[in-house]
Amino acid sequence: MTVDQVLAEVRGMLIEIIGVEYALSLDIGMDTSFDADLELESIEFVRLATMLKDRYGDRVDFVGFLATKERDEIIGLTTGDVVTYIASCFTLSGAIDG
């Protein structure tokens, strides 16, 4: 999967979480911060992680991704950080799933 494809999917998930109404005023891109821009609550980030796990399965190791990060780093993540990580997992495994 390309970065653009992953970004489109992650953007869709974020809109579902924060609500279309709130998302209308935002242009969610790679630089969009979960905290400062989307004001994502901690529990909403957990929900995003669940959606990502459901979508990408074991090919993307979110436990490993998060295990090495401090709370402030997780809160400070951008959409691009997550998208780039997911895309890198696909590049490494060579797996493509439309």
């Binding site: 609550e41 901690s42 529990i43 980030f45 957990v46 992680a49 979110f62 436990v63 490993g64 998060l66 295990a67 090495t68 709370r71 997780i74 809160i75």
Partner: peptide, 25 residues
């Protein structure tokens, strides 16, 4: 509070170290 306080701090590292982790709200 909710499960995210553990999710952000201890749960993922414990799972990563090799444990079956259960969290619930």
């Amino acid at each position: 509070d909710n499960l995210s306080s553990f999710y952000y701090t201890l749960a993922n590292p414990v799972a990563h170290a090799g444990a079956d982790v259960i969290l619930y709200d």
